[in-house]
Simulated scan of single mutants.
Amino acid sequence: MSNPEQCNDNQAMTPKGRERQRRILDAAREVFLEQGFENASIGEIMKRAGGSMSTLYRCFGNKLGLFEAMMQQATNDLFDSVDDRVVWHDGLEEGLRSFGRRFIEQINTPHAIALFRLVISVNGADREDIQRIFYANGPERVRSRLTEFLRSQADKGRLKVDSCELAAGQFIDLIKEPWHQQALFGVAYPPDLPEKSLEQGIAIFLDGTRIKEL
């Protein structure tokens, strides 16, 4: 998807321009989460952000372009920490646990749950584009980082799987269910369920993938 002039080129932007862009994206996030994509008003977004409609269209092109930029910002806020080296340990089990706890912490906030609900609630003509945007900036990014870690462990002879990418997706599913689905649909669950899901998910994953020492 193309972004016209794209105010998102931070290197070319002045501090004032970056602040203006942040205000627009923060306002867009509020309105999209409150009203949904279809019902969100561009006018309301600019009313909250301050500034002209011409600035919005010059920077983002249209409503979908604004949503894409908002989603990039939102997922960066949520998932930047998975790129932090302190999350990853040299050991296989320690690395999975550290990643898992950080991941669960990120997707279990009210803001993250609201983003997931926003994406799955879209029913209009832009549904496929919106889901693709969210997937590329969120789930795919996280899975790719975990895939890199698993490949490093396989290279060290600690892990044996046919596909590290597939294994990364399977591990993520192990540790986020069933509590994440319950959270999305407003179903109450025991507060210790995410941690139990993590520990059991690690045990199941390692039982099927870790190379046993002789």
Rank of each mutant, 00 (worst) to 15 (best):
165 E>M: 04
71 M>Y: 05
193 L>E: 12
52 S>Q: 14
105 E>C: 13
47 K>A: 13
31 V>F: 02
25 L>M: 10
119 V>W: 02
165 E>K: 03
32 F>A: 05
192 D>V: 14
117 R>S: 13
52 S>I: 13
107 I>E: 02
188 A>Y: 11
1 M>N: 08
207 D>W: 09
48 R>L: 11
61 G>H: 02
114 A>T: 10
34 E>M: 12
107 I>M: 01
42 I>H: 04
142 V>A: 15
133 I>D: 08
38 E>K: 11
168 A>N: 03
46 M>E: 14
211 I>Y: 05
183 A>K: 05
166 L>N: 00
134 F>E: 04
210 R>S: 05
84 D>Y: 12
195 E>Y: 09
159 L>Y: 00
213 E>N: 12
82 V>M: 14
103 F>K: 07
192 D>M: 10
69 A>R: 00
120 I>G: 06
205 F>I: 00
24 I>S: 03
136 A>R: 12
180 H>D: 11
69 A>Q: 00
47 K>H: 14
116 F>E: 10
206 L>S: 02
190 P>Y: 05
114 A>Y: 07
62 N>E: 06
181 Q>L: 13
166 L>F: 00
97 R>M: 09
44 E>N: 11
99 F>N: 04
31 V>E: 06
162 D>F: 01
107 I>Y: 01
73 Q>F: 02
133 I>E: 08
39 N>E: 15
47 K>Y: 14
101 R>W: 04
209 T>G: 03
73 Q>Y: 00
20 R>V: 11
55 T>E: 09
170 Q>W: 06
126 D>W: 08
43 G>T: 15
95 G>W: 06
149 F>D: 02
124 G>V: 04
1 M>S: 05
207 D>H: 13
138 G>R: 09
50 G>N: 07
94 E>H: 10
17 G>C: 04
131 Q>N: 07
41 S>C: 05
47 K>W: 14
125 A>E: 15
50 G>E: 08
174 L>I: 07
182 Q>H: 12
142 V>I: 10
40 A>N: 06
68 E>C: 03
185 F>R: 13
46 M>K: 13
59 C>Q: 03
102 R>T: 15
